[in-house]
Amino acid sequence: MMFQRRPSSDPLWKDEFSVQAADERYVNRRQFSKFLVLTSFGLLVGNLWILIRSLRHRAPVYPAVPIARLGEIPIGGVKQFRYPDAGDTCLMIRTAPDHYVAYSQKCTHLSCAVIYSQVNNRLECPCHDGYFSVNDGRVLQGPPPRPLPKVMLEQRGDELVAVGIDLNAEG
């Protein structure tokens, strides 16, 4: 076997500890190479974990939650709500008399809370100046790598109901 030591070979300490000063460079390089290969193995494990997560993915089921009554917020106004869980804060914005949009409030960069800027008509992350379009959640500027998750709204009677989340709102 390649990875087993032969009985006739030198003892392990001679391989791992250089007796002669000239050998030190070799030992250091071999040990550093071993560390790099172990790092590569760790990165492979990370990729395999992502593969397993993607294979075991199940489409999430979102509850239907009433958010607000029609006309409850003024045009250009904002209402904060939590959806789908108590820890997930979202923003609903009334952009026109009969048009509402809602997005997760967590910036896709480092999860800072985004705020709505009525003056600029965009969602802004104050941490690193990441800006998102209020129309579709796409990134306008800054470091966020993905659009804001969009909360799907439905009108039921005179109520606006959140019915799901679209992670890829831009598409």
Binding site: V37, F41, N47, I50, R53, S54, R146
Partner: peptide, 27 residues
């Protein structure tokens, strides 16, 4: 994966495995 695109996971894992194999051969 975080953006909901799961189709990239398999090719990424395969290429990562190939790179690890190459690193092992070099070691």
């Amino acid at each position: 994966l975080l953006a909901g695109h799961r189709e990239t996971a398999l090719p990424a894992a395969l290429i990562s495995a190939a790179i690890f194999g190459a690193c092992l051969v070099l070691f």
